[in-house]
Amino acid sequence: MRITKRTNIAMRVLMFCGAHEGVLVTKAMVAEKCNTSESHLAQVIYKLAQLGYLYTQRGRSGGFTLARPMAEIVIGDIFREFESEQHNLECFADGDNTCPLVKGCRLRLTLKEALEAFYNRLDKETLDNLVCGNTALLELFVMPSCHSTRPLRTGTDRG
Rank of each mutant, 00 (worst) to 15 (best):
S61H: 15
Y119H: 15
F64D: 00
N129L: 09
Q86A: 13
V74M: 14
T36H: 03
T135K: 05
Y53G: 01
E85M: 09
H87I: 09
C132D: 05
T110R: 08
Q50I: 00
E85V: 00
L101H: 11
N35L: 09
T135S: 03
G52R: 02
K124Y: 10
N134I: 12
T110A: 11
L54A: 05
L101F: 08
R68G: 07
N134F: 01
F82D: 04
R60W: 09
E81P: 07
K112P: 08
R58M: 14
L111E: 08
N129T: 07
N120I: 07
H87F: 14
F82H: 02
A49M: 07
Y46N: 05
G104E: 10
L89H: 11
T98G: 04
L41A: 01
C34A: 07
K103D: 14
D123Y: 01
S84P: 06
D94N: 08
Q86F: 12
L41C: 02
F79N: 15
L66T: 02
L51Y: 06
G104H: 09
F118L: 14
P69K: 05
A117N: 14
F118N: 15
S37A: 03
Y119W: 14
F79L: 15
D77G: 10
L109Y: 11
R106D: 09
D94E: 09
A117C: 14
Y46C: 03
R80I: 08
A49Y: 10
R68Q: 13
L109F: 12
L109V: 14
G63D: 01
C99F: 06
L111M: 10
D96P: 00
E83W: 06
L89R: 08
F118E: 15
E83N: 03
A31E: 04
A117R: 14
N129G: 12
L127R: 07
D128K: 04
E83V: 02
K103G: 06
